[in-house]
Structure formats: structure tokens, C-alpha cells
Design a protein around this nucleic acid. Structure first.
Lengths: 340, 340
DNA sequence: GAAATTCGCTAAACCGATTTAGCATCCCTG
DNA sequence: CAGGGATGCTAAATCGGTTTAGCGAATTTC
């Protein structure tokens, strides 16, 4: 028999459908003996629940969603999402929850997807990434009453659960390291200014500057593209007084920056130290290999999955879990500044 | 009223549930006037179908699956999947079909996922990538009677539909270009030998060699990693007589190879020309920028989605659609060989 | 102009699970 | 040994759609 249903099992076991349902879901209502017998029959008929039927009956679909609002072009190079995805899956698969992934162009489209998913009952909850300063998604999700967990930022004033790493501490560890090497002119090529994490990193640099005796510590925002990363680097290195170290908010921009330095005859790390705020195979492929901040993105995803499942189970839960701190992996692109 | 159902619409319109279902799905059984009225009421109550209910009734879930069997670590850098994903979505969203994505470790796990998806009725069909020589997935899917489309290879002897680009022609265009520049010693750093496309590319090089008067044209297989790409390059460049051009089966390996050339003092493109069989932002970030073969992966995905929908609609369909040929984008890493 | 066909719709069955109400039966209690 | 409460199970309702059988009225056919 192809695709047996619980009725088939019930017939075979000589009990009612209800009893089978109780047995298979491990809830009271059947004796241990009967339960064992039903379980065995189900196993031997290789029965599996029909997801739609279960979703309809139990009004939960055992599926969560992730929407990424970025142009596909920029997505591929970043291992961030691949790792996040794997981590999420790892956290979800333990509970047999599946993951819906959608790539859209912008936040408006993203909210539209949430609306649709909610009204069509396609997901039990969602994961939010790339939190912006006044993020409209928070309010939209609250209205939809769709369980959610925010990755890499706080979920508004106590509204949403979140899983985050300390961007501030991470940035401080980079700047402090550079200062310890003797650098006093450190520039920061940042990402899009409307991202919360960009803001936190910029603030961290600004706050640390006086304490570390930095002469100049400008943060220049970009759109995260290699083009703007290169252009900003070119501008920085064209100044009369150059920075002796540059921190990039992404590995792609750091690589682009390295290219500009080479093209301008600025030696790395001799004349310029480079640090990437994000690690990947990219930084290791370079010559010199780039010093970078490594985050455990997989673990990030795993924890986000767990928190989301908690929120789905009890929507009143508000967890704000801080994950392991990122660590600075020192490679060949950082050194003490040339004595000037 | 939150989440109206078709019964609510039926009440409001003064007709039966059946009539509403007919109207909303555009099938005969209601007059145009009634249909228009029902549609308007549905719109104004902002009704959306409950996906589980529809799946249960119509025994189709409006969802297709993609399983990627690769370690997550190697996934991120390749824009291939991000583009493919976007293309797939673009092709699917027109028909309101959603996409399930799963990253697993190996093919065995992948087949297990198909089995589960099939028995739980979670997807209407699947997309296969990275076809190997004697691919066990083909047979498994046939057994499960799960509609499928193969990307980048033929679906066995008439078994599965497919969407593919001509790897052979693409490789020929690269080798012919290099030969035209004057290269006679061309090496090929290939990928995993069990992939069908690796085999096709190797054969293309071997077949073209005599015709183009190549002195030596070895294909060396790797695991697609940057490490093996680098190691293989080191071996090639350590020979008494070096190749004057190397073709890499992926952009990551090409970048790694470029690094080795620099480290060994071999100038590119002066002493060595480099071509990557796959394009991405990576190749453009390099100095020199790499000549690479560009494929329209987005379009690839879009077409695959369309073919899959055809197969789902009529499982007897066997389409073998050939997509646009890849084109060689010449950048700075190729030049005539130094006169020897 | 009677018979056959089409049209527009309703009522009810159905998809495969969950969940609730209720009914024996058995055990404990006083 | 009667009353009360678990225990183990059944029957039926339910979730929100789709699909089929059938019915009366209008239209076509010969």
C-alpha cells in the first residue's frame, strides 16, 4: 500500500483513528501496550504524517521562514548566509521543522511576504536579519502576531526575541589591537548607515578614539559594495596624511581596499594595515592574507532557531540571547606602522 | 473578521462554498456575474487561501524543493547558488509556488530528504544540481515518482527533464581562444572527477588538443577547494617546462592559482595566462582581474523552474532545454605567451 | 413540441490528520 | 458494596478548502 494513512493503521491495529493519533503523538489516552503495538505497525507500514493534514488539524505547519532583502548579486559572495542557513537548519531539523527561504529586493517586498505567509498560514514564525535603525518590519510583525526572532540586533523595545553578538566589543577589540601595534591614524570603512550594526560599530570607534589616543578615526559609510569600498579607500589613501590602518565592515570591501593599496603602491602591511570585520575564505585567498574578525555564524543560526521555537511555543517569551564573542584572527595584513 | 474562509465569503455572497471555490479558481460552474461578485467580496474581505487546506483538498502543495549536498563551508563563496536561487524564485513566484531549501552533507542524506518530502507531501517536485556520473538520485526519484528537473546535465536515459548549458562548447571556446593567442601548453585544473560536467570538460580539452596543435594539455582533477587548486598550480609551475596557460574549473581555484603564481614570481599574464570557468565578483576583485566564462545562472534557474512546473502538471513530459551558451569575458589575466 | 443537452448552482462527500465528548470498565475508597 | 474517579478507548466533529453527484430551469435539437 502506497502512503498509508492513520485510518489504515487503525484498521490494522483494530482501534479507532483517535487512538492512533494519541499513540503517534505520545499523548495520554492509550495504554502502553496498545501504544507500542500501534507504533510498531506504523513503523512497519512506514507511515509518515501528511504535512498538510496535520497542519490543518493542529493549526501549525512545522515550518519557519527567512526572507533576505538584498539584491541577489551581492548575496553570493558572502558566506554569512550560507553558514547562517546551515546553522538554522541544524537547529530546526532536531524538531523536524522545515525552512522557507525567500530572496527579495527590498524591505517593502519583505513585509509583503510576511503578510502573505501569515494569511496563508505557511509558516509558524520568521527570522529577521539586517535590522535597520527604525525597522518597519518590527511593527508589521507585531500587527500580524507572527512569532519572530531578530538576528544580530535587539528586537525593539522588548517586542521581539533576539540573538545577537556584541558588535561594539568586537570593534573595540580590533581598534585596541591596532592601537597597541602603535597605530594612531585609523580609518573605518563602514557599511550602510541605516543598519543598526553599522551604527554600533561607528559609535564604538568614535568612543574609543580619545581613550586610545588616536589622532584621527573617521568612519566613512558605503553601500557595502566592492566599488564603494575601493573608492573610499582611494580617497583615504590620496590624502596628504594617510591613515596607517583601515578597518573594513566586510571582507569584500577589505579585499577591494587591498587591491587599491596595491594599485597605488602602498605596501600592506608595511605602509598600511588592513582588518576585515568578517571572515571567509576570501580573506585567506589574498596575498597578504587578511587579518579578520571571525564570527561563529553557524552557531548563531542554531541558537536563533532554538529561540524561535521557544517563541512559537509560547509567544509571550522574550529572550535576548547573546552569543559567543567574535574573535580576531590575525594574519599577514596587520603590523606596526612604519616609523614616521 | 480575522482570516475569513470561503464559507464566510459564501454567506456574504449568498451562494454555496462550492460556487465560491469555482469562482476563485477560475473554473467553470458559475456565471460571469456571480464570479465577479464573489471575486469582489473575496478581495474586499482580503481573503487568502489557507495553504494547508488547499493542499489537503487539491493534493498539491504549491511548493518545490531544492537540496544542496555540499559542506556549508564551501557554499558561501560561490555566487552560483545565490543566483540560481533567485532565478528559481523568479520562475516560481509567477505561479505562486514557494521554494524549500535544504543544505545537507552528502547524497545519501539528500535522498533521505526526498523520501521524507515525498511521504509527507511537502513538495510537488524537486530540482537536482551537481549531477554525478552514475547518479543514485535519478533512480531514487523515479521510485518515489517525484517530479524532478535536472540542472546542468542530462537526466539519465530519457528519465528526467533537464535544463543544461553546453559545457563542451564552453570549454572549447576557452581553449580555442588560448590557442589563438598562441598558447601550446595549456593545463586544465578540473573539479571533482565524479561530476558529469567535470567529465565533459576534460573530454572537451582532450578532444580539442590535437586539432589545435597543443603540445600538452593535461587535466588534473581536484576537490574544487582553494587548497587543492593552489597545490595543483604549484605542481604545474614547478615542472621543468611550465604550461603557459591554465584553465580552472572554478573561480575560487583560479584565484588560489593566481596567488601561487605571484608567490612563485610567475607574472600573470606575462608568463602565465589564467582563465576561470565561472564568473563572479571574485574574479573582478583580483589584480589582474581574471578572464572568466560567464554563465547566466539566474536565467538558468528561471528556466529550470518553468520546466519543473511543466513536469508537475504532466509527469509524462520530458523536456531537455538547452540554455543560452556561456560567454567568455576577457579581462587582464590572458595574453599571448612570452616568446620562448 | 417532446426529448436531449447545457448552464448555474447546491448539497454533501472527501482529503488526513487532531481534538472533544462520551461511554464502558476497572480500581479505589469509605 | 455503592459512589467516585481514573483509565482506555470510540465516535464524531473539526480544520478550510476541492470535487463530485445531482437538480431545476433554460436552451437547443429533431
Amino acid at each position: 500500500m502506497a502512503r498509508p494513512t492513520i485510518s489504515d493503521i487503525a484498521d490494522r491495529a483494530g482501534v479507532s483513528k483517535g487512538a492512533v493519533s494519541f499513540a503517534l503523538n505520545g499523548r495520554p489516552g492509550v495504554s502502553d501496550a496498545t501504544r507500542a503495538r500501534i507504533l510498531q505497525i506504523a513503523e512497519q507500514m512506514s507511515w509518515r504524517p501528511h504535512s498538510a493534514a496535520r497542519a490543518l488539524g493542529a493549526s501549525r505547519v512545522d515550518s519557519v521562514g527567512l526572507v533576505i532583502a538584498r539584491p541577489a548579486r551581492t548575496l553570493g559572495v558572502e558566506p554569512f548566509f550560507a553558514h547562517l542557513l546551515s546553522g538554522l537548519q541544524s537547529g530546526l531539523s532536531a524538531h523536524a521543522i522545515s525552512l522557507q527561504l525567500l530572496i527579495v529586493e527590498d524591505t517593502a517586498a519583505e513585509i509583503e511576504v510576511y503578510r502573505r505567509w501569515s494569511s496563508e498560514h505557511r509558516v509558524d514564525g520568521v527570522i529577521l536579519v539586517d535590522l535597520t535603525v527604525k525597522d518597519p518590519r518590527i511593527e508589521a510583525l507585531r500587527e500580524l502576531e507572527l512569532p519572530a526572532v531578530v538576528i544580530g540586533g535587539r528586537g525593539g523595545k522588548g517586542a521581539l526575541a533576539s540573538v545577537w553578538a556584541d558588535d561594539r566589543d568586537a570593534m573595540l577589540s580590533i581598534v585596541e589591537y591596532l592601537a597597541a601595534l602603535g597605530h594612531r591614524r585609523i580609518a573605518h570603512v563602514a557599511g550602510t548607515p541605516n543598519f543598526q550594526h553599522t551604527q554600533r560599530r561607528i559609535r564604538a570607534v568614535r568612543d574609543a578614539a580619545p581613550r586610545l589616543g588616536l589622532i584621527d578615526a573617521p568612519s566613512l559609510t558605503t553601500d557595502f559594495s566592492d566599488a564603494e569600498g575601493a573608492a573610499t579607500t582611494r580617497k583615504l589613501l590620496s590624502q596628504a596624511v594617510r591613515p596607517t590602518a583601515i578597518v573594513y565592515d566586510s571582507d569584500v570591501m577589505a579585499v577591494a581596499g587591498l587591491g587599491v593599496a596595491m594599485e597605488m603602491g602602498v605596501s600592506v602591511p608595511g605602509d598600511l594595515s588592513i582588518v576585515a570585520f568578517d571572515d571567509s575564505i576570501l580573506t585567506q585567498l589574498m596575498h597578504p592574507a587578511l587579518t579578520a574578525l571571525s564570527r561563529d555564524t553557524f552557531e548563531f543560526g542554531r541558537q536563533a532557531a532554538e529561540v524561535l521555537l521557544e517563541v512559537i511555543a509560547d509567544p509571550a517569551t522574550v529572550v535576548n540571547k547573546r552569543t559567543a564573542d567574535p574573535v580576531l584572527t590575525v594574519r599577514e595584513s596587520t603590523a606596526p606602522p612604519a616609523s614616521s
